[in-house]
Amino acid sequence: MSHHLFLLSPSDTPLYELTHYSSKPAQTTTSPLASNLPSWSTSAFAGTLTALSGASSVSQSYHVQGGGVRMGGGKDRHVIQMIANASLDVIEDVMRKDSLMYLKSVDKFNEWTISAFVTPGNMKFVLLHETRNDDGIRSFFLDVWELYVKTMLNPFHTAHTPIRSGVFDARVRASAKKHL
């Protein structure tokens, strides 16, 4: 089971990305319709479509049943980014209505559930996950927020500066390990 975290600046630029592989098993509740997919075309465009519709990840996870399902590389990474980006539409919509910072399960797309966390500075933390884990995600987001605020204390760090700090990365990973 994997989680994908993106920290997006107000101009939708990712400042930080994290892919976390949780040891917990993914209880995939894929629809039976998603099985037995045909391979219908070999053109590059068909490949794009396959990836975007989420078919490739399904078939992939079917093939490597036992082993650790590696995702987030190659084309899937692109798709996951697309999904994260597309979920911004809903996040922007919802966050204007609710004044909550933690928007849990704000969107669902393909097999992914998207939770988001909007800071007062309009930074958006977007997390793609497969199972519901509201409390864990909430505390994870709070951790990330605290770390982010500490990073922002740096006077040379603006809302558009990518976060490359190793310490930040290590702490986020630790928090992900703990909560997710």
């Binding site: 894929t30 629809s31 319709l33 998603a34 997919l37 045909p38 219908w40 479509l49 396959t50 519709s53 989420g54 078919a55 399904v58 078939s59 969107d107 669902k108 797309f109 393909n110 097999e111």
Partner: peptide, 11 residues
Amino acid sequence: LAQVHGPWLLH
């Protein structure tokens, strides 16, 4: 609407 989208589109 998001329920439409999924691998089954390939069918």
